[in-house]
């Protein structure tokens, strides 16, 4: 099953992820980005939405940039399953021959995209951080940090269709919705039978979230390998707490097991845009900076004056975190005390 004829392929599609009627934000981000790319090519944006009782959210997708929404609404697709979603999208894609297909690189998206690319015999570029159109060749150019220091690669898929790309949540900006936009809602029949589907979902457990997520945080203090060990990491946590910031990390402390995976910032982790980012012992490798470069104020503490992070930090401290962070903690505690006193006074009844 291959979509061979490149000339025949046209249009940009976005797979829309939802769970119990809640849209995944990354899908909306991709609709916005997709709109820009589609305009360069002069083609339509199609959202493909799969689930049960999802008609209500379909219209939202038009406001976020879709010209058409293909809707597969059926109890059998209540839960995401690789087989059902692959089957529905592949069938529709073979019929309509989209040129481009964008998918959010969430757990679900990363389960679906490669399966679909193999079904459609086409290429998929994972975890891109930039997307553009080569107008002359009418190709999507997907840029991603590459293995190795500071390496970027521009990936194309010249001879197979659709050109598939996955993008992590937060990488593309969420555009404002335009409630004046019009579009077409297209319902398709779901012909799947439960007995033909091999995988069953027995149970879904949602973890209780522990407060503000990294992506939503105003302030983030990130620890890199320079913190040295678990104790160093705990010190960074204390600093974060005093600042009212969330803790993040590069991939190495995560690999070391000092902090959980959901705190990883970068190409293969979270993408953040806080007001304040403080990097403690972070070198600033492209795979990490891809996820934090849009922070408003960047402060770096690093012993090595040549560390890449100083190329894009606003303020730099060339020094050892074992000396700087305790001093910062002390100073923050001191200044908190100072500002607390008048606040206490005000509490007294007049």
């Amino acid at each position: 099953m291959s979509i061979g004829n490149i000339q025949e392929s046209s249009g940009l599609w976005v797979f829309v992820e939802q769970s119990d009627g809640t849209l995944a934000r990354v899908s909306l981000e991709l609709l916005g980005k997709g709109r820009d790319l589609a305009e360069k090519l002069g083609v339509d944006v199609t959202a493909i939405l799969i689930g049960h009782n999802v008609s209500e959210i379909a219209e939202e997708l038009i406001f976020y940039g879709a010209d058409r929404v293909i809707i597969a609404d059926d109890p059998i697709v209540q839960d995401y399953r690789t087989e059902t979603h692959t089957e529905i999208i592949a069938e529709q894609a073979l019929k309509e021959k989209p040129d481009i297909l964008l998918i959010g690189a969430t757990c679900i998206g990363r389960d679906l995209a490669p399966r679909l690319s193999a079904r459609l015999n086409t290429g998929c570029t994972a975890d891109c951080t930039e997307l553009d159109i080569d107008k002359e060749m009418r190709l999507i150019v997907a840029t991603k940090p590459f293995f190795g220091r500071d390496l970027m690669a521009d990936i194309i898929c010249p001879f197979h269709r659709p050109q598939m790309v996955t993008v992590r949540p937060g990488v593309m900006e969420l555009k404002d919705q335009d409630r004046k936009r019009h579009g077409e809602l297209i319902y398709i029949d779901v012909k799947l039978k439960e007995e033909d589907i091999k995988v069953k979902v027995l149970e879904t457990m949602r973890a209780a979230s522990d407060g503000i997520s990294l992506e939503e945080a105003d302030k983030v203090v990130a620890a890199g390998m320079g913190v040295g060990n678990q104790d160093g990491f705990e010190m960074v946590k204390e600093l974060a707490k005093l600042l009212g910031a969330q803790v993040g990390a590069t991939s190495l402390p995560v690999d070391e097991g000092w902090v959980s995976e959901d705190k990883k910032i970068g190409q293969t982790g979270k993408t953040i845009r806080p007001k304040l980012y403080i990097g403690c012992g972070v070198s600033g490798a492209i795979q990490h900076s891809a996820g934090m470069i849009n922070s408003e104020l960047i402060i770096a503490i690093n012993t090595n004056p040549k560390a890449d992070i100083f190329n894009f930090a606003d303020y730099g401290i060339i020094g050892n975190i074992n000396e700087i962070i305790p001093a910062l903690i002390k100073e923050l505690k001191y200044s908190a005390n100072k500002s607390l006193r008048p606040a206490c006074k005000r509490l007294k009844p007049n």
């Binding site: 150019v141 590459f146 521009d154 990936i155 190329n311």
Partner: peptide
């Protein structure tokens, strides 16, 4: 199907 068209060093400044 996928090909890298260009690999380059990108230092963010």
């Amino acid at each position: 199907p996928t090909q890298s068209r260009k690999v380059y060093i990108k230092k963010v400044h």
